[in-house]
Design a protein around this nucleic acid. Structure first.
Lengths: 204, 204
DNA sequence: GGGCATGCTTGTCATGCGTCAAGGGTAAGG
DNA sequence: CCTTACCCTTGACGCATGACAAGCATGCCC
């Protein structure tokens, strides 16, 4: 009966849902939204396509769960220490390295996110989930800026939302360039981010 | 035989292709990429689905033509006079008004563009077409900045590509917000654009 | 150890897709 | 007036999809 004793039925149910959503995420990030079918998802997991209908009422339900699981991943990834940066040089180098690495190594995940956000333009059912993730990203971007301001002894002259939007703009662009094979994409991103940061936290 | 006498076979062929691509664009901007089928496109035109295969070898051929037609539309729209702005106040007001209007009135077309760009992440065949359009947009954004610099007697301190990417970032964000029902989306865009512009063309 | 709920598989259904072939209507040219 | 070339419609195909129902296996409980 239970896969793991000591857990209730509901817990096990939720656990499986999460597992399946994770498998679905892997497929989505490879093939993109448009090409991903339920059978394709099942094939990339240890199950068959029928099980998806046991755990999800329909495809939209699955996708929504995927978005929520993705959100958790985003949260987990960005938890890592901003406070470890004790001086400006370390932070600048660290952020630059992180940007470069995440663009080149986590390309598929970022691509999935932007694909998802695009689909929220046409699919109202996932729109709220997407905005929730955006709020998380906005919060993260803001914490970076605040730390930078702290280390430079300055004050941000831009609001949190605008700040996020501008950084998101250059990040998305760098991702697109990188995927198109542009070798200078990440360097350009770092330069642009530095430029922006200095304008958001101007030295007196 | 000919729809219009005085035109060659090739010309008429190209003309029909363009017409059909325009009809396809209308459908795409309404339903989005994922939901648009050839039958759906035909149903929104004066023809039946079979004709699409007479004028296009396959679906990718159609989409490519759509992107090219869209590009022409973009070019046409942005041709309107930047040089009519004779002083700074007129320009600021004019650009602000244009931004507000295009977001609220041409929502579907912008949405289509970002949908298209997203799909270029997974569909390599349209990637080059998309980049071509981006170059056009970049050029337009740069001309706006140059005109602004001229009227303020300043010099841009950012390169053309970075400039485009940042403006595109806030524009895309405003579009998403507007579609999500946020009534302040366009006002925020104008504010952000002003902030950015002043940093790109700083007063000495 | 028989009964039974749970978890997963298998097979099937209708639908809609891209593609294509065959054919009809129409107007120009002999 | 008849032929011919062109443009478009119709209908059909093979296939993939989301959804679902029936059934099988597993392991707990009485």
């Amino acid at each position: 009966m239970p896969l793991r004793s000591g857990t209730s039925r509901e817990e096990r149910f939720e656990e499986r849902r999460t597992q399946l959503a994770q498998a679905a995420l892997a497929t989505l990030s490879e093939l993109g939204f448009a090409r991903t079918s339920l059978r394709e998802i099942a094939q990339h997991s240890d199950f068959t396509h029928g099980v998806l209908h046991y755990y999800f009422t329909d495809k939209v339900d699955l996708i929504s769960e995927c978005v929520r699981v993705y959100h958790q991943l985003v949260l987990a990834r960005f938890d890592e220490g901003l406070e470890t940066y004790q001086d400006l040089d370390t932070m600048v180098a660290g952020v630059a390295e992180t940007l470069q690495r995440t663009i080149t190594e986590e390309t598929a995940q970022h691509r999935l996110w932007y694909d998802l956000r695009s689909h929220s333009m046409f699919n109202e059912e996932i729109r709220e989930d997407v905005r929730e993730i955006e709020r998380t990203l906005e919060g993260f971007a803001w914490r970076v800026v605040l730390r930078y301001a702290e280390l430079t002894g300055t004050e941000p002259v831009l609001d949190s939302l605008s700040n996020y939007r501008m950084f998101d703009g250059i990040f998305y662009a760098a991702l697109l360039d990188h995927m198109a094979g542009d070798p200078e994409a990440t360097d350009r991103l770092v330069t642009q981010a530095g430029w922006l940061m200095d304008r958001i936290c101007p030295q007196r």
